[in-house]
Amino acid sequence: MVQRGSKVRILRPESYWFQDVGTVASVDQSGIKYPVIVRFEKVNYSGINTNNFAEDELVEVEA
Rank of each mutant, 00 (worst) to 15 (best):
K7H: 09
Y16L: 03
W17S: 00
P13H: 07
K42R: 13
V21K: 00
E55N: 10
I48V: 14
E57L: 04
K33G: 08
V24P: 01
T23H: 04
S15F: 05
M1Q: 13
M1V: 12
V27L: 07
V61T: 05
I48M: 14
E55Y: 15
P13Y: 08
E41Q: 08
S15Q: 03
Y45C: 15
R4H: 08
F18A: 04
F18N: 03
E55A: 13
F53E: 02
V38Y: 00
E60F: 11
V27H: 05
Q3I: 10
D28G: 07
E14I: 04
K42M: 06
V36P: 01
N49Q: 07
V59H: 07
S15A: 02
A54W: 05
V59T: 08
S6T: 12
I48H: 13
Q3W: 00
V36N: 00
R12P: 07
K7M: 11
N44S: 08
K33L: 11
M1K: 14
Y34R: 08
L11G: 03
S6L: 05
N44Q: 06
F40W: 00
F18D: 04
S6I: 09
S26F: 14
S15P: 01
E55T: 12
V8Y: 00
F18R: 00
V61D: 05
P35D: 06
F53R: 00
V27Q: 02
V24Y: 00
L11K: 05
E41T: 09
V2N: 03
K7I: 11
D20G: 05
I37C: 15
R39W: 13
E60C: 12
F40C: 06
E57D: 06
D56F: 12
V21D: 00
P35A: 08
V36Q: 00
N51M: 15
D20S: 09
N49W: 08
N52F: 09
S46I: 11
S6H: 06
V43Y: 15
R39I: 14
I32K: 09
V24M: 02
Q3K: 14
V27E: 02
K33S: 09
Q19V: 06
I10Q: 02
E41S: 08
T50V: 13
Q29V: 11
Q29H: 13
T23V: 13
E60W: 10
L58N: 03
Y16V: 05
D28I: 09
R4G: 06
V38R: 00
P35Q: 07
S6Q: 10
K7L: 13
L58R: 01
S30K: 06
S6F: 00
S6N: 07
R39A: 10
E60H: 09
A25I: 15
N51T: 11
G22M: 04
L58D: 02
M1C: 13
Y34D: 05
I48A: 13
I10M: 01
N49L: 05
E41F: 04
T23S: 04
K33P: 14
W17Q: 01
L11T: 07
K33T: 09
K42S: 12
V8N: 01
V8M: 00
I32H: 10
Q29W: 10
A54G: 09
Y45E: 15
W17T: 00
S15H: 05
N44D: 15
D56P: 04
I48Q: 15
Y45H: 15
V36A: 01
V8F: 00
F18Y: 14
R12E: 04
D28R: 06
V24D: 01
R4P: 15
V59Y: 08
Q29I: 11
R12C: 08
P13C: 10
L11W: 04
V59E: 15
V36E: 00
V21F: 07
V36F: 12
G5R: 03
A54Q: 07
K33N: 08
F18Q: 04
N52C: 14
K33C: 10
Y16D: 08
E62Q: 11
E60A: 12
W17P: 03
G22L: 09
E57F: 02
E62P: 11
T23I: 13
N49E: 05
Q19C: 14
K33D: 11
F53M: 02
A63Y: 11
E14L: 07
V59C: 13
G31S: 09
S6E: 04
D56R: 07
L11Q: 06
V24L: 02
R39E: 13
Q29D: 12
T50E: 13
D20P: 00
E57Y: 03
Q29C: 13
N49K: 04
S26N: 10
Q19S: 07
K7W: 02
A25M: 15
N51H: 13
V43I: 09
I48L: 13
P35F: 11
A63D: 13
N51L: 07
N51D: 15
F18I: 03
L11P: 02
R12V: 09
Y45L: 15
A54E: 07
S30G: 10
G47Y: 05
S6M: 14
E14N: 12
V24S: 01
S6W: 04
S46H: 15
I32S: 13
F18H: 06
N52I: 05
I37L: 15
L58C: 07
Q3P: 05
P13D: 05
E14G: 12
P13W: 08
R12Y: 04
D56E: 12
L58G: 01
V61R: 02
S15K: 02
V59I: 13
S30L: 06
I37Y: 10
E14R: 05
Q3A: 11
R4D: 06
Y45A: 15
V2M: 11
A63R: 12
T50P: 00
